[in-house]
Computed example of a mutant assay.
Amino acid sequence: MATSDKLKKAFDLFDKANEQDPNKEVYNGSEYAKEVLYAIRMTDKLNSFAPDASEAVQLTARCQHICRWEISRDSYEMNRTGYLKWRQDLKKFHADKAGEILKTVGYDKDTIDNVAFLLEKKQLKKNEETQTMEDVICLVFLEFYFEPFAKKYSEEKLIDILQKTWRKMSKKGQEAALKLPLSESSLALVGKALQG
């Protein structure tokens, strides 16, 4: 995947912002700021899933959760309405944060607007780049975050989450998901979700 100097600089600044994350995660013996590790996983997954992705999609993958810890889930009501409001506010927050960085790097308004459009997940199922981003988000979730997540919830809730995740993905995304190195228990849950 070709990389421009501007893209590298934007990645560096996104990662520098995410290094402020107080939440840490150990992976393969190294400690990372949680959102830095997420950003790296998003870039790696995009590179393997859609190696010809546009620069705007590459930028969006890298800043998908930029500074997410600054708006905590528990500052909203702990119900579905609160959750949806938090998600909406996060999308706008990520778009604004990313936009500030992209402006300092020298990206034009069209690119900045396109990244904001993708971060806000507009026209899912209709816009090819939005769909690529959603597929990558779902693949990263399934490969790296589903297993620890699964320990906290009932089988019924997990099957519901898997079914919702599956519906958001394209056929290509679903095919890639079935090739992920999931544990036997996760694969069994996926199997049950797909039968439902």
Results as ranks from 00 to 15, higher is better:
Leu119Tyr: 02
Phe49Ser: 00
Ser154Trp: 06
Thr3Phe: 15
Ile40Leu: 13
Thr132Arg: 07
Arg167Ser: 09
Lys45Leu: 03
Arg73Pro: 14
Thr43Asn: 12
Leu180Asn: 02
Arg41Leu: 04
Thr130Ser: 07
Met42Asp: 01
Gly106Gln: 12
Leu102Lys: 12
Lys34Tyr: 13
Gly99Ile: 12
Gln195Glu: 13
Tyr76Trp: 11
Gly99Phe: 12
Val140Tyr: 00
Glu128Leu: 13
Glu19Asn: 08
Asn79His: 11
Asn47Asp: 06
Gly106Lys: 11
Asn127Phe: 06
Lys192Asp: 05
Lys8Cys: 12
Cys138Thr: 02
Lys92Val: 15
Leu7Arg: 08
Thr130Asn: 05
Leu158Ser: 03
Ile40Asp: 05
Leu194Glu: 04
Ile71Pro: 11
Leu7Gly: 06
Ala188Thr: 13
Ala33Gly: 10
Val115Cys: 02
Leu7Tyr: 09
Lys97Asp: 15
Ile161Thr: 10
Gln163Lys: 11
Asp44Cys: 07
Ala150Met: 04
Asp96Lys: 15
Val36Met: 09
Val136Asp: 01
Ile161Gln: 08
Lys92Met: 15
Pro51Val: 00
Leu7Pro: 04
Leu46Trp: 00
Ala176Ile: 05
Thr132Met: 09
Asp21Gly: 03
Met78Phe: 15
Leu142Thr: 01
Val140Ser: 00
Asp5His: 13
Ile66Tyr: 10
Tyr107Trp: 10
Gly173Phe: 01
Leu102Arg: 10
Ala95His: 08
Phe146Pro: 00
Asp89Gln: 11
Thr60Glu: 03
Asp74Phe: 14
Val57Tyr: 00
Gln123His: 12
Trp166Met: 02
Ala98Ile: 12
Lys164Trp: 09
Phe49Leu: 00
Leu7His: 06
Lys168Glu: 06
Tyr27Glu: 08
Leu139Cys: 02
Asp135Asn: 04
Asp108Gly: 13
Pro51Tyr: 00
Asp110Gln: 15
Asp21Ala: 03
Ser183Lys: 09
Glu184Arg: 10
Leu139Asn: 00
Phe144Pro: 01
His94Gln: 12
Arg41Ser: 04
Lys126Ala: 14
Lys121Ile: 03
Ala56Arg: 00
Gln163Val: 11
Tyr27Asn: 08
Glu31Thr: 13
Leu142Gly: 01
Gly82His: 07
Gln163Tyr: 10
Leu124Cys: 08
Val26Ile: 10
Asp12His: 10
Glu120Tyr: 05
Thr60Ser: 04
Thr43Val: 14
Lys157Ile: 12
Trp86Lys: 05
Thr111Gln: 06
Leu162Gly: 02
Gly106Glu: 12
Lys179Ile: 07
Tyr38Met: 13
Gly99Pro: 13
Val190Ser: 04
Pro148Cys: 03
Asp5Trp: 14
Gly106Phe: 09
Val36Phe: 09
Ile159Cys: 04
Gln88Tyr: 14
Leu119Trp: 01
Ala17Ser: 04
Glu25Pro: 07
Leu7Cys: 08
Glu19His: 06
Phe149Asn: 06
